[in-house]
């Protein structure tokens, strides 16, 4: 069974690093680098997991997440959020918006992999 992750991140180097890590874990990694039509892309791609950056051109990751959770079929979709701002206020906002896991850049690769595995396991169990 193929696991699909959608990575929404505007920094190409970070995208490449995550793609490298997850591909080796057996994920199919799709990327998108912009916020405006991110929700549409997610709805179309139907990924098992979404990794979402906060500071996106066009529309912030927070807004993308909020809009995404408006859709009934997307309420359970695991979303791992990454931010470079790292303020506690961002974490609270993200939790209110319905984030599954929140991580601050720079992260260790192990952290990201563990988070992805946990989220996927939780989603699979339910």
């Amino acid at each position: 069974m193929s696991r699909k992750v959608l990575l929404i991140e505007d920094e190409p180097n970070i995208s490449e690093a995550i793609r490298f890590l997850l591909t080796r874990e057996g994920w199919q990694v799709d990327t998108h680098a912009e916020g405006t039509d991110a929700v549409k892309v997610i709805l179309a791609a139907r990924p098992d997991l979404v990794i979402l950056d906060v500071m996106l051109p066009g529309k912030s990751g927070m807004d993308v997440l909020r809009d995404l959770r408006e859709h009934d079929e997307m309420t359970k979709l695991p979303v791992l959020m990454l931010t470079a701002r790292g303020q506690s206020r961002d974490r609270e906002m993200a939790e209110q918006a319905g984030v599954s896991r929140f991580m601050t850049k720079p992260f260790s690769n192990t952290e990201v992999l563990t988070a992805v595995r946990d989220l996927h396991a939780q989603a699979s169990r339910s």
């Binding site: 920094e11 995550i18 490298f20 790292g86 303020q87 720079p106 992260f107 260790s108 690769n109």
Partner: peptide
């Protein structure tokens, strides 16, 4: 400060990720 933090963390993220990849892979 928030902006500076973001601008510093972004390249650091790439550097850390790739250096870990090179170390661990």
């Amino acid at each position: 400060l928030s902006q500076v933090s973001h601008e510093l963390r972004t390249p650091m993220t790439s550097i850390r990720a790739f250096s870990e990849i090179m170390r661990d892979t």
